[in-house]
Design a protein around this nucleic acid. Sequence first.
DNA 1: ATAGGTTGTCGAAGCGCTTCGACAGCGAGT
DNA 2: ACTCGCTGTCGAAGCGCTTCGACAACCTAT
Lengths: 337, 337
Amino acid sequence: MVTLAEVAQHAGVSASTVSYVLSGKRSISTTTRQRVEQSIRELGYHPNAGARALASSRSNIIALMIPLRTDIYVPVMMEIAIAVATTARTHGYDVLLLTGEEGSDAVRRVTGSGLADAMILMDVELDDERLPLLRSTDQPSVLIGLPADTSGLTCVDLDFGATGALCVEHLATLGHRDIAVIGEAPAVYERHTGFAERTLDGLRRRARELGLRLLHRPCEGGYDAMAVTLARILDERPGTTGFVVQNESAVEPLLALLRQQGRAVPEDVSVVAICPDQVAVQASVRLTSVAIPAQEMGRHAVERLVAKLEGHGGDEVVLIAPELTVRASTGPVPVAS
Amino acid sequence: MVTLAEVAQHAGVSASTVSYVLSGKRSISTTTRQRVEQSIRELGYHPNAGARALASSRSNIIALMIPLRTDIYVPVMMEIAIAVATTARTHGYDVLLLTGEEGSDAVRRVTGSGLADAMILMDVELDDERLPLLRSTDQPSVLIGLPADTSGLTCVDLDFGATGALCVEHLATLGHRDIAVIGEAPAVYERHTGFAERTLDGLRRRARELGLRLLHRPCEGGYDAMAVTLARILDERPGTTGFVVQNESAVEPLLALLRQQGRAVPEDVSVVAICPDQVAVQASVRLTSVAIPAQEMGRHAVERLVAKLEGHGGDEVVLIAPELTVRASTGPVPVAS
DNA sequence: ATAGGTTGTCGAAGCGCTTCGACAGCGAGT
DNA sequence: ACTCGCTGTCGAAGCGCTTCGACAACCTAT
């Protein structure tokens, strides 16, 4: 293993000079810098992470806490995680993967040991148990998702309220008056996951403002659950012509069931999905949808965090504006014959 | 921040004693141990990760390199990653997330800096560019997936050859003679991903042995691609009654298209999938399938790695035996009328 | 009673790096 | 000619921990 001292000796300078070449914290003459850089290359030197962390009390590691659950659409999580890792690298940070399993203990452990300089939390609940800890520690953190009380916290999320409103508006514009919302699994609402509730709020508020009727039903993924849910909806509101779906694993079942019942999409009924673009274009009908900007969320989170680590940028809630893409699953409400 | 020295002072012992209490590397009297543990608790002490890594040259971190691609089924990756993280924690390790983006450079960086003690690589290609490096370094590593030449490497994977054979056998037992294989996207074969080719080998060999006709067609996910692929298959081999699918995003399209053409599953044609159980049970027909044991793979990988780190256990290829679960998508070949 | 072996604890060295204060050398201002 | 202020470099201290050898205290076997 090559050390700083060896590089210094090889280049004929002192260890501190090499350190300053590496960090750029003091000015170094061009000739010296080049000589040192040459030695580094020749010897294949890599600074030792532990020593660095010890001496500088900075690990250059960001901890990312991901949920263990699988009832939320996994590819979105993965895309966020990858975006976080990629963006972090461009800022010189590595990413430590923590699972939600350990909960607050993981926060304590990481903070206490100086393993990471900062952390990003995903799958934040409205009243998350980790929040008090985050507020009390001086380690920077960013949440992906919104808790009920965001004071003293930095958060990044899609504006799910606006997303709900946007879906309703689109359907309203096309003349739909009776709208059904196929939501996430009941468990998601029971644990008060912010995004699900905020979407619902947005949907309801805008529906009220526009004078539409809205029926919300949580739904597990899969065909059987969807069949039951759809039957109930059509029983209760036979005149339903617009659907908003916020549950990726219910999308395809819904389309299949509608087809099976002889309701054509988009001629008879319209469907708007809240899902990643990939799901929208791969579905059996290309879906009009509001995309979940996973990459953007991951990127934003890291950038907020890096800003905090560098001292500028305080607490702030970043809500990403939703964008609705019209595809082949929505159309004007059919003329009553 | 609380240090070892402060704990030592508080407990009235020397620093080294506290260290030995923590590591258990020397025997400590019960009374002393308890006193020290008490002090640790009272002061809320957490050992500093950097200092530890520097002094012991062990970071207690495992690096996990995941692919950036999205043409391979993402939930499987995620499940493996989570299993790795969870299992690692039970052995006292944390997980550093690397993306495939950096390739060999990441391996060099992590190895050189001592950031991690060992690494796990996913999405290994048959002739992976990172292999020479892994062979030449003395840092332990485990691959999830199999390259062409496994000498000097430790690998964990599902036995895809046996998986292919199992699928063919099952269909053969039911009387099917003409089998079509819907494979992964062409790009997956072009980059020589081991698991895809090994599955194909297994399918072909067993089909030959049993005297079945086998037609393999790669296929992108989604409805449009599947429609084209299916049309070609039925054109070329109209008598096809058995399908093997190894592409999660082609499963649902295939079922829909078969239904649409009036071919009932499993009455007219049988479908065997190679996919995670969740996909198999959530499909519109509950699928007979060979599961991809993502968790088990992640767990095994960590356990091999920990064994190597502790000195026992050398290079070895662990192939997990496939298990076929019969569900509702396969049945006896229809009697010719 | 004595040699030999255990057990439990301590002190000190050192892991590889960062960072602070010191200072030599040099050009500019008076 | 002398001082002032740069710029570029160095030496040394120290970050918090692990680990090795030393050794006191005790126990056991002769």
